[in-house]
Write a protein that binds this DNA or RNA. Structure first.
Lengths: 336, 336
DNA sequence: TTTTTGTTTGTAATCGATTACATTTAAGCA
DNA sequence: TGCTTAAATGTAATCGATTACAAACAAAAA
């Protein structure tokens, strides 16, 4: 591989001049700039990033840690993250945490080892000790998005999960539903708690009483939605007329459970999801759901991290708006 | 940040010894190894990867270029790629090409600039000139998976698209269908041509004649499947009784088009997809489709690239098996 | 012409780890 | 004990780019 020395030789100048011609052209005469450009082309030079990174002690790489690349929710968030990063000349390294603490640890290590300049965390399913340790030294550039830790304060981009769930529940109540169940995500997850709280308040506001066996826990997969939906629908007593699911995949699982149980959506059962993933428009019936501004979340999170890296003073906590999208999986409650 | 020098000082030895204690412990006495380990812990040392990469001129990073992270097809492929990479101590940098030639160029540049050791290409939608140029110098570690260029030979992991499409079509024929349409992916894409060829042969084998206006082109999205499906179903003459779609998302789009047109699947229309993505079990009806071993494709591709990097002698072209998964979107052809 | 000021370029130290080679130390053996 | 061999450690060059500082040069002002 040709190095900056080869270019310097070909352009008949010093390496310092080559470096300047490439990095800060205004510091160099027109003639030299030209000669260097030609020399670069001639020898086929390309800059050795490791050398630059070593010298500058930065890597222009941001690590994004997410629970699972396969989750369609994250793809738009990632698009947003990437677009901002690229504009600012940064790379994005996607790290699938995949329930593997060692892996997460190794991603965190990329920062002290100068392979990454900062981290964006999209999941709370990571070893708490690690995060706590990093958050302790204030210099560690770490931003959360989508989720958050309820016992640890980090710069965060999020939505108002409680409010969104509250509104979704209110909507069901407004349709006349009185027996409203919910399928949550993993109970230890703070955003799931928030959504659950929103659901409870929605019921309480309407003076409906909350039945504990209508609050069931899933894990955000199709399958868990299907299973929990099946269980909810086969209860002996009067079954719920509406189910609020904490994400779309589980809601789509419920749709299938309803079909299998011969329960017609939305006539006999209303279903609401959360996230508004692409598939929610193509399932049968189309899913009423809470839309999240995923791309904007990604963009904002990356901007926040870059601002922190540049030591700019910025609000460390931003909330973005959600919107209830009404489609055809919800309807007026059936008469008893 | 503490460096190797700080460790050396704390362990009362030279930097060379520290380096050896960490990288090749067998070259160092037990006592020293111990001292070094303690010193590392004490000063909180972590290796500067840029320095190591510079010295070793490698980066232990593999770039994976894909057309679109949002495409659920790729998530399992990526899982496979990552698992093998991590085992071998490599990082995976995911690059979303996103119809942006500049971006792709910048990903390709990571190799000469020592930020990446090799590239896995999952898309043919990249500037041909770039690929051709790289492929020209034989040293450039570049592997294709899932797709391929028909005018350029590169190490490749793939499936037999023609055969898979042939079998899918045969299956429809065996169910008694005589009017079988197809929705292809982008026509310039070699794998789409292969699948189309398989379809044609399937019809030809059965002595069915091929109707050109039953071969329509989509772009692998839900939406294009919906649109093309709608058009196919509203044709004046007798409409097709089966549609073979070149991926699942388009097939799911067709399912929706059929619902909207009041055509019952599978009684009046059979639909087959391709890929077997997660959704295909949760749509209504469940989708008959061609299963691809996505995770295995990823694993095999990464292994191939790592073998190439290690200069091991390996077959540069491997084909993996597909399987037709019959679910409920296909049935015997309706009587005329 | 001389001095001042500003522009352009070069010299050489530096970033942090690795490793060839040299040196020291220890172990084995007669 | 003295000699050979092996193991352990140290010295210092190296990877390639950046940049503080110095030097050279040109243009402007006196």
């Amino acid at each position: 591989m040709p190095t900056i020395k080869d270019v310097a030789r070909a352009a008949n100048c010093s390496t310092a001049t080559v470096s300047r011609a490439l990095a800060s052209p205004e510091k160099v005469s027109d003639a030299t700039r030209h000669r260097v450009a030609q020399a670069v082309a001639k020898v086929g030079y390309s800059l050795n990033a490791a050398a630059r990174n070593l010298r500058r002690s930065e890597s222009r790489t941001i690590v994004v840690i997410l629970p699972n690349i396969a989750n369609p929710f994250f793809s738009d968030v990632i698009s947003g993250l990437e677009s901002v990063a690229h504009q600012a000349g940064y790379q994005v390294l996607l790290g699938d945490a995949g329930n593997n603490p060692d892996r997460v640890a190794s991603y965190f290590n990329l920062v002290p080892s100068n392979q990454a300049d900062g981290i964006i965390l999209l999941s709370t399913e990571v070893p708490m000790a690690l995060v706590r340790e990093r958050q302790a030294d204030a210099g560690f550039p770490l931003v959360m998005a989508c989720e958050y830790f309820d016992n640890l304060s980090l710069p965060t981009i999020h939505i108002d999960n409680e409010q969104a769930a509250h509104k979704a529940t209110e909507y069901l109540v407004a349709l006349g539903h009185q027996r409203i169940a919910t399928i949550t995500g993993p109970a230890r997850n703070p955003i799931c708690k928030d959504r659950l709280r929103g659901y409870r308040h929605g019921l309480a506001d309407a003076g409906l009483n909350i039945q504990d066996d209508w609050i069931v826990e899933g894990d955000f997969t199709f399958h868990s939605g299907y299973e929990q939906g099946r269980i909810l629908l086969q209860q002996d007593k009067k079954r719920p007329t509406a189910i609020f699911c904490q994400n779309d995949e589980m809601a789509i699982g419920v749709l299938k459970a309803a079909r299998d149980a011969g329960v017609v959506v939305p006539e006999q059962l209303s279903v609401i999801g959360f996230d508004d993933i692409g598939f929610s428009q193509y399932c049968e019936p189309e899913l009423t759901t809470v839309h999240q501004p995923r791309e904007a979340i990604g963009r904002t999170a990356m901007r926040l991290l870059l601002d922190i890296l540049k030591q700019r003073n910025v609000p460390l906590d931003q909330s973005l708006k959600t919107q209830l999208i009404v489609r055809s999986s919800t309807a007026r409650a059936p008469r008893d």
